[in-house]
Amino acid sequence: MIRGKVHKYARDNIDTDVIIPGPYLKIMDHNELAKHAMEGLDRDFVKKVKKGDFILAGRNFGCGSSREHAPIALSYAGISAVLALSFARIFYRNAVDGAYLLPIEIGEDAYNEIEDGDELEIDLDRNEVRNISRQKVYVMKPFPPLIKRIIEAGGLFNYTPE
């Protein structure tokens, strides 16, 4: 069970160039990358985020580059999960295999009704997203079996294939 405040960006195609712009790709220090998270979209993002918070966004979150810097920057800025209508494939596998944050697929109802600043609770056992601020419960898309096992193991390197 994880709990935090949500930062809503009501748009599709939030790409890796706005999550962490290209010039920072040469930087490998995770905390340094975190200082520039979401810089291309919201310069105040880093100031607003507290450890454990969530991002809520539309379709195709994380599209673009394979840069693992994207989930790293978000994770080290404090984000524990991104809730989105869908994820670009490389961002999704980077988030899971590197155990940086949870990519959680939600439906239109949750996307439309959850507002910026709402307090959420994510229950992975019941596949539920609970909006504490508004007393509403939403179903999240369950993780496919392999993805769930990698998440439970704490990343791909801790996972032993059957």
Binding site: S66, I90, R93, G98, G155
Partner: peptide, 10 residues
């Protein structure tokens, strides 16, 4: 296909 550096390390 493209991947991030954790996957490539794996």
């Amino acid at each position: 296909t493209g991947m991030g550096h954790t996957d490539i390390a794996y």
